[in-house]
């Protein structure tokens, strides 16, 4: 590894002493790349949860996402396919970037044909029993943390993020390694209140899709419980012209064809 990377480093060093952007620019760009690619998008997601004993649970769902404003409010529509007992269940979020305003959330339960409003939850709660939390899926507002660029390598920016309200979260800080070229967050390391590393999210595979660098495989490891969750994204499409009305009660009860195909 070292021998391969050294010449590369040497080659790029003299000609391109890039100016290093300030940390706010870095986190803004990384946030857009991670959560706001295109004006909307769709992906088929396969989630595999493996506990420390090796027992697996699988979830499959389709996510539709639409940005109300780049870097701001968003709408998410999650259509479950597996496990079969939650098939056709829909989870919908109107995410508000304003930290003072809670997200609006709905759940559609097909067997009862019931559109249920769900209370704004703790965003650090597990998403469908996996090692991902809600905030990992829809993004943590940049306003919630202070950011500090603690390291710059030839490939990565390393940003340390410290919560402004430490009592609302289970971590004391987290470091994010951001790819200097694509601004894709490649690794996030969460440290607990005793400053021990306990949770790691890695981007295992990144592909260019419609000119957007996209994480197609990510893995979260909980070092405390020994549990891991892998998310694989396929059938990814950006700019598919989703409209506002898809994120309403009408489509909760009868998802659009885009969501089920």
């Amino acid at each position: 590894m070292l021998t391969f990377s050294l010449p590369l480093f040497a080659a790029s060093e003299p000609n391109a002493p890039e100016k290093i952007p300030d940390v706010q620019t870095i986190v803004n760009k990384a946030n857009i790349v991670a959560y706001y690619q295109g004006k909307d998008g769709k992906a088929q997601v396969k989630m595999t949860i493996t506990d420390k004993k090796g027992q697996e649970r699988n979830h499959e769902f389709i996510i539709l996402r639409m940005d109300v404003k780049d870097g701001g409010d968003q709408k998410y529509f999650v259509y479950f396919q597996r496990p079969f007992d939650v098939r056709k269940m829909v989870y919908m979020v109107h995410k508000h970037a304003d930290v003072k305003k809670d997200d609006d959330r709905w759940l559609y339960l097909p067997a009862l044909s019931l559109v249920k409003r769900i209370a704004a939850g703790d965003k650090r709660t597990s998403f469908v029993g996996s090692d991902f939390v809600y905030e990992d899926v829809s993004g943590r507002s940049l306003e919630e943390d202070t950011h500090e660029l603690i390291e710059t390598t030839d490939k990565l920016f390393v940003v340390k993020n410290v919560p402004k309200q430490p009592d609302t979260v289970e971590f004391s800080y987290y470091n994010v390694e951001i790819d200097r070229k694509t601004y894709v967050p490649m690794k996030m390391e969460f440290y607990d209140k005793e400053n021990n590393l306990y949770r790691v999210i890695e981007s295992k595979k990144v592909e260019m899709i419609q000119k957007f660098p996209t994480v197609v495989k990510s893995l979260v490891s909980n070092l405390k419980t020994g549990s891991k969750t892998e998310m694989e994204f396929s059938n990814i499409k950006y700019d598919i012209n989703l409209t506002d009305d898809i994120f309403t009660a009408r489509y909760l009860q009868k998802p659009p064809r885009e969501a089920i195909r």
Binding site: D102, D104, R117, I118, A119, A120
Partner: peptide
Amino acid sequence: VRGAIAKGIGN
């Protein structure tokens, strides 16, 4: 009527 009230949902 149903909507968000102080961290919860009221109806």
